[in-house]
Amino acid sequence: MPPRLHPPAAGAYPAALAQRVLDDALAHGCRVYAIAGLQGSGKSTLAAQVAAAGAARGLRVAVLSIDDCYLGRRERLRLGRQVHPLLATRGPPGTHEVALACDTLDALRTHGVARLPRFDKLADTRLPPSRWPQARGIDLTLFEGWFLKTPAQTAAELAAPVNALEREEDRDGRWRGYCNQALAERYPTLWQRLDRLLFLQPPGFDTVPDWRWQQERQAQARAPGRGGMDRAQVERFVRLFERVSRQALARLPAIAELSLRLDAQRRVLD
């Protein structure tokens, strides 16, 4: 059994884990290696560490998040008016520009020149293309996201609300039905571009609000004066993700090629 790995207090995962993930990607000949994990699980941190480990070995590694492919605020406001008000808030399936993610991964896979979209979460909008970093001749792309390869639910599973937000603001199920249909119809073409999937598996959904609040405070500390969410807003925001997060918890351990169980402090148990 491999040793239990403990991330240091700064929030990073152990260097040994980053090396293991890089070895896993290279051993399977991956061009696009995916890292899934619920909000606040540290998937962006791990992706950055794996990229640094790859660079130390002379590899050109790009990191892309599905969050960077969120629809801009204007597009989401339009969805909020035309379909359901909850779609104005970024997050669930149906609020991403899937074609942008696919095109970017395709460009990275061919060793060509690619511009990497970037989303400013504090400003809640995608940066203009003129501010996207450029990547060229990439050997490995790390693609991270909170619901990668999560399958859609059945109509029966959609029927009952999972929390107060759904009971009060989605009484007819129109919002969750739209998100579920998007998950079923739009995202599989993106999932097909992922060569291998690692799932950072939390002990349960109840840890996610605390993790997301820690993440929010860190983001605000890096950019003081730029706003962001308070604790109550974070709690509400997380509830938008709860349904698909619970589906990911139930289904991804059997779908991902590799799963690593975490405890509430994000220590790796496997």
Rank of each mutant, 00 (worst) to 15 (best):
P7F: 01
D23I: 06
R4A: 03
P8S: 02
Q39D: 00
A18M: 10
L22S: 13
Y13G: 09
A53Y: 07
A12N: 14
R31A: 11
Q49W: 06
A56H: 03
H6F: 00
R31G: 14
R57N: 05
G58A: 06
R31N: 11
V21K: 10
A51Q: 09
D23K: 06
A36Q: 10
P14N: 01
A36G: 13
L38N: 13
R31M: 03
L22Y: 00
R31I: 00
I35N: 03
A16D: 04
A48Y: 00
Y13M: 09
A34W: 00
D24P: 00
G54R: 06
S44D: 02
V61A: 01
K43I: 07
I35A: 02
Y13A: 09
A47T: 02
P8N: 01
R20S: 06
G40K: 14
L46S: 06
A36N: 08
A55Y: 06
G42K: 10
D24R: 12
A10S: 08
A56V: 10
L59W: 03
Q39L: 10
A34C: 14
D24E: 15
G11V: 01
A18D: 10
A16I: 00
A18E: 09
A53T: 11
L26I: 08
L5K: 07
A18K: 02
L46W: 05
A52L: 14
I35V: 13
L46Q: 09
Q49V: 07
A53N: 07
S41C: 10
V21A: 04
A48F: 00
A55E: 15
A34I: 07
D24V: 04
Q19Y: 02
R20F: 02
A36T: 06
G42N: 00
A55R: 11
A47Q: 00
P7D: 01
R60G: 07
V61S: 09
P14A: 14
T45D: 06
Y13D: 13
G40N: 03
L22Q: 11
